[in-house]
Nucleic acid binder design. Structure first.
Lengths: 357, 357
DNA sequence: TCTCCCTGAGAAAACCTTTTCCCAACCGCC
DNA sequence: GGCGGTTGGGAAAAGGTTTTCTCAGGGAGA
C-alpha cells in the first residue's frame, strides 16, 4: 500500500528541543565526589557520612538524574524487558491478556515489547531476533487460538519462555483457560435452574476447545441424568446461531421435544441464537435459557436480554504468565506443564432466575 | 484480586537451560584476531584480506554470535526502541493502530514497548519513567478518544513524541482521522444513490467527533439542496439505535416524511438501527439505507444485511505515526500540527446500489 | 610514640561494542 | 638502499554504571 494523502493543519510553534540526559559523572562532578561514591550514595550502598549521601542525592534530584538503564542492563546481564509475541491482530483475546502481563510486570520495573507476528514465520523470526539482540530477559507467547502454535520455535533460545493462550512447545510452561471447567459452570448452572433439555451449539470441530467443552457438556448432563443432545458444530458466527436455532426449533415432525436451554460456544453464536429465538416469539429466558462463552462484554451487554456468559479470566491469565516468567527469570525452578486457570460465570439475564428465587 | 486456583498438568521433562550469549570477544579470540578487527569484519568496515573477513564471519555464524544491542545502544546513544502509550484497554481502536506502528518500525529494527496506562496518572507516570530510564528514542501516545488527553505530560521529556488518535499537547505532532471527511464520504454516497431524506444518529455531544461529523453532514446536505434533519444524539449503543428508529419512524402524526437513509455515528448504533428497522418490516437497503462508522468488521459483517461503514484507516494512521516518529528520531525537522488522515467508505449491502447500477 | 583498626572515599575493572588512530610490514620506484 | 605509499590489523577510548579493591587519615589502645 502506498502512502496516503494527508491534510495538515500546521501550528506555528517550535517542536520540543532534544536534550541530553544527565549522567552520573556530571552529578558526581557537581557534588564534588567520584562516580563511585555517587553511585553508592544513590543506591544506598557503601559507607559515607550522612551529609555526603544527602548532598549527592539532592544534586541528583536537582539535575533530574535518571540512571541509564542500558548501562545497568549491560553490567547486570539483565535488561528488565520481556518480549510478548502475539498473532491476534484483532485483539479480542490478546488485549486483556497483554494488559494482564503488563500489569504484573510494570511494578517489577520490567517493560514489555509488543511483537505482532501475524501468522508469518518471517515476521515472527524478525521479531524474535530483535528480542534476542535486545537481550530480553524472557519471552511470552500468546495467540488467538489455544491449539495453534506460533510460527516460530522458542524452545532453544537460551532464555525462558512462557506460553499463554497458545499451543506450547513440549517441556514448556503454559497457561491456558480451563475450557472444560468453564463449560461445566454453564451447564451446571442450567441444571440448577431446572432446565432439562440443554442443547449445545458450538464452533468448528477443528478447534480443540470445541471438543473440550462438548465433552464437559456431555459429562454434566450424564451426571444429572439429563438427555444429551448431540452438539451442533458450525462457524463462530451469529449466522450460525440463527441456523442452529432453525435446526433445533423448526423440526418438521413437531413431535420432538424442543430444548429449554442452549449453551453456546461463543457470544456471537449466542447472540444469533437469542435473536433467532426472539424472531420466533420464543421467550428468553422464560422459555429458553441461553449462555454464551468469552464474556465479550460489548456483545453480551447488547443482546436482549443481556447475555450470561463464561469469562476466561484472560487478564488474570496474563498476570499469572507474567509472574511465572518473572520467577523463571529470577532463577527459580519451575516444573514444565500446562496450567489451567478456572473460568467464571458472569450471570446476566439470558439464563433465568433460579426456581426458588 | 488474590491469586487464583490453578490446575497443573506437569510434564516430566526439564526446562530449557539458560545459556550465555556469545560475545564479540569470544568470536575474535577463536578467529585469532582482535575485537576491533572482528567488529569491522562483521560490519563491512575497515580493510582486511577477504580471507580474514570470511573467516571471522564464519566463526561468528558458527558460534551463533549476535551483537549485544544494549552495548550498541549505549555507544550510539540510540536504543532503537520506542514507547507506545495507550489507555484503550479494550483495544478496538488501539490494536489496529498499534499493529500499524509496529509494522512501520520493525523493518527499521525498532521495537515497541507497550505501556497500558489506563486512565491512571500514577500508572502513566510509572510507564513514562520506565521509558525514560530505558532510553527510548521516542514516544507515541494513543488513546480511545481523539479529544481526550492521556493522563501524563509528554511535552518536556527531551525526546520526540507523536500523538495518534488522541488529544495532543500544543506544539506537538499528531495524527488523527478526518472525521468530517469520513462523514462526507457517507452522506455523499447516499446522495449519489438518490436518497433525499438522510437522517443522522450519533453519539453523545461530549465527543468532539460527534460535532465534526454532524457539521459535515449538514454541509453535504446543504450542498445537495437536501433537507437537514437535526442529528439525534445519544449513547454509542445498539439500544440507542433502536430508540432512534422509534423517534424517526414512529412519529405519531403520520404526516411527517420518514427518512430514506440513516447515517450512524458508529457501527453499534447502526446495528441497532438495522435491527429495529427489520422488526418494523422496513426493508434495508430498499426502503432505508444505513451507513455506520468505524468499520468494526465483526459487527459490520454480522448485521443483516452486512453494513456499509466508514473506515478510519487506523492501521495506516499507526504506520504514519511510526514513520513520523522515525524521521523525528533521525533528526529531520517537522512542523508541529495536526495531520488528518482520510477515511474510506467500505461498501457492503446496507446502503443500496446506485439507481443506474 | 607506635601499631592496629576503622572510616570515608576514590581508582579501576567490568559489561560489550564501535571507531579512531596508529603501527608494522611490504611494495615499487628512483 | 632510502623513501613514500599502501595494506592488514591492533590498541585504546568511549558510552554510563556497578562493584571490588585500595588507600589515606584518624582515633584508640599499648
Amino acid at each position: 500500500m502506498g502512502r496516503i494523502d494527508i491534510q495538515i493543519m500546521a501550528s506555528d510553534a517550535q517542536p520540543t528541543p532534544v536534550k541530553q540526559p544527565v549522567t552520573l559523572r556530571e552529578v558526581a562532578a557537581i557534588a564534588g565526589v567520584s562516580v563511585a561514591t555517587a553511585s553508592k550514595a544513590l543506591n544506598g550502598q557503601g559507607r559515607m557520612t550522612a551529609e555526603t549521601r544527602t548532598r549527592i542525592r539532592e544534586t541528583a534530584q536537582r539535575l533530574g538524574f535518571r540512571p541509564n538503564s542500558l548501562a545497568q542492563s549491560l553490567l547486570r546481564r539483565r535488561s528488565f524487558t520481556v518480549g510478548l509475541l502475539t498473532n491476534d491482530t484483532y485483539g479480542r483475546f490478546s488485549l486483556p491478556l497483554m494488559a494482564g502481563v503488563s500489569d504484573a510486570l510494570v511494578d517489577a520495573g520490567v517493560s514489555v515489547f509488543l511483537c505482532n507476528v501475524e501468522d508469518d514465520p518471517r515476521l515472527a523470526q524478525l521479531h524474535v531476533d530483535a528480542m534476542l539482540d535486545k537481550r530480553v530477559d524472557g519471552i511470552i507467547a500468546t495467540g488467538k487460538r489455544i491449539d495453534r502454535h506460533l510460527p516460530v520455535d522458542l524452545a532453544n533460545l537460551g532464555i525462558p519462555a512462557i506460553y499463554a493462550f497458545t499451543e506450547p512447545d513440549p517441556n514448556a510452561i503454559a497457561f491456558v483457560s480451563d475450557d472444560a471447567g468453564g463449560a461445566r459452570l454453564a451447564v451446571e448452572h442450567f441444571c440448577r435452574l431446572g432446565r432439562r433439555r440443554i442443547a449445545h451449539v458450538s464452533g468448528p470441530a477443528s478447534f480443540a476447545v470445541v471438543h473440550a467443552r462438548a465433552e464437559a457438556y456431555r459429562e454434566v448432563l450424564a451426571e444429572n441424568g439429563l438427555p444429551v443432545m448431540e452438539p451442533l458444530l458450525g462457524p463462530w458466527s451469529e449466522a450460525w446461531g440463527h441456523e442452529a436455532v432453525r435446526k433445533l426449533f423448526d423440526g418438521d415432525d413437531g413431535t420432538r421435544e424442543k430444548p429449554d436451554a442452549v449453551f453456546c460456544g461463543n457470544d456471537q453464536i449466542a447472540r444469533g441464537v437469542i435473536d433467532a429465538l426472539r424472531e420466533r416469539g420464543i421467550g428468553v429466558p422464560d422459555e429458553v435459557g441461553v449462555i454464551g462463552f468469552d464474556n465479550w462484554q460489548i456483545v453480551a451487554e447488547a443482546t436482549r436480554p443481556p447475555l450470561t456468559s463464561v469469562d476466561m479470566n484472560l487478564a488474570a491469565l496474563g498476570r499469572e504468565a507474567g509472574l511465572a516468567l518473572l520467577s523463571l527469570v529470577g532463577g527459580e525452578p519451575a516444573l514444565p506443564g500446562i496450567r489451567k486457570l478456572p473460568c467464571r460465570l458472569v450471570v446476566r439475564q439470558s439464563c433465568g432466575r433460579p426456581p426458588d428465587g
